[in-house]
Design a protein around this nucleic acid. Sequence first.
DNA 1: ATCTAATCAGGAGTAACTAG
DNA 2: CTAGTTACTCCTGATTAGAT
Lengths: 210, 210
Amino acid sequence: MKTELRSCAACGEPISDRFFLEVGGCSWHAHCLRCCMCMCPLDRQQSCFIRERQVYCKADYSKNFGAKCSKCCRGISASDWVRRARDLVFHLACFACDQCGRQLSTGEQFALMDDRVLCKAHYLETVEGGTTSSDEGCDGDGYHKSKTKRVRTTFTEEQLQVLQANFQIDSNPDGQDLERIASVTGLSKRVTQVWFQNSRARQKKHIHAE
Amino acid sequence: MKTELRSCAACGEPISDRFFLEVGGCSWHAHCLRCCMCMCPLDRQQSCFIRERQVYCKADYSKNFGAKCSKCCRGISASDWVRRARDLVFHLACFACDQCGRQLSTGEQFALMDDRVLCKAHYLETVEGGTTSSDEGCDGDGYHKSKTKRVRTTFTEEQLQVLQANFQIDSNPDGQDLERIASVTGLSKRVTQVWFQNSRARQKKHIHAE
DNA sequence: ATCTAATCAGGAGTAACTAG
DNA sequence: CTAGTTACTCCTGATTAGAT
């Protein structure tokens, strides 16, 4: 029978084994079905993934095709170099400090704040109350400049709703409340705090303006 | 007439609507039933939670009364990122070196000493004689600045209430009392002690100021 | 140009620390 | 323990700068 004469999609040799595998419309020697990335055998795996005629184990497939770059939101392909942080994936070039724009190197310390990547210096600057006043950000060894671009948050409609509702109840919430409001809006505590500060100022100005 | 009408537990106004809600033994205008924290409407929600006469949405309830962060002691909700260490759970942002305040990254080495988290550098410093005096934070690569950030406790409203009530009874509690007050407030004995010290000083100052 | 988020400068209050 | 000091948090009011 014709059906007996299959050749293995991997090694090209004919398959005469009693047991063989049918995957992605092709046939494979059991020992030839391997992930094209990590080469782990897939014959005893419960799933494997095909893409452009390549076979992947689950981990490598989702690693390569499941994720989108958290910065540019575009896809990440198998050949792209990436960086990972927490559960996020970035193109190598996209993995840069959100504040100074400097691309971060392997092994360099960084911080993730609300899915924003920050270099160490700008992270510290941010968490330490935004003060430090003094000089620039990353400095010391060469890069930096472009003096710390100021990031301006744009609030969504829902966020404003929650903020305003809370402002009506209490225009001067304490730290705990602030944190609570921050967490329900998904904003950072600092941003929330600043909003309340500005809001109080706004209110005052309008009352005086009358 | 008056006695026939129910009044809304939130706004206090009478309820004449054809549809209203009965929750926690009270009646509510449909639009008045909102989470006391995020203010989200709960009339179309499938569940709401009552605690001490306050109404919560599911997320906020579990945040407040579910698992607690071992650092800040505040709630952890299902959507929060956490780090675990031994049997402890921390908000991502709370998982930081107790001594230098630096937030610790995934995979970074750290130590747990009596439920205190320490970065590697400060752990070593501590076990290796606790002196070294030297300074500089973790890094060495320039940042340091404020050596060993002083952690300042912020008391909650309830904690202050308990402390002040006890202060009125006895402004100079002995060790046993101190320990008792510490345990009901959830503060450490040392922090409680310092509060009483400062409180006595404050009182003195104010009496003199008159 | 306008609105407003973010920053800065400076003050008040007070938690934590130090010396005695 | 007290008295004095240091430094952290939170505020206001003025200013700077990003987005429309």
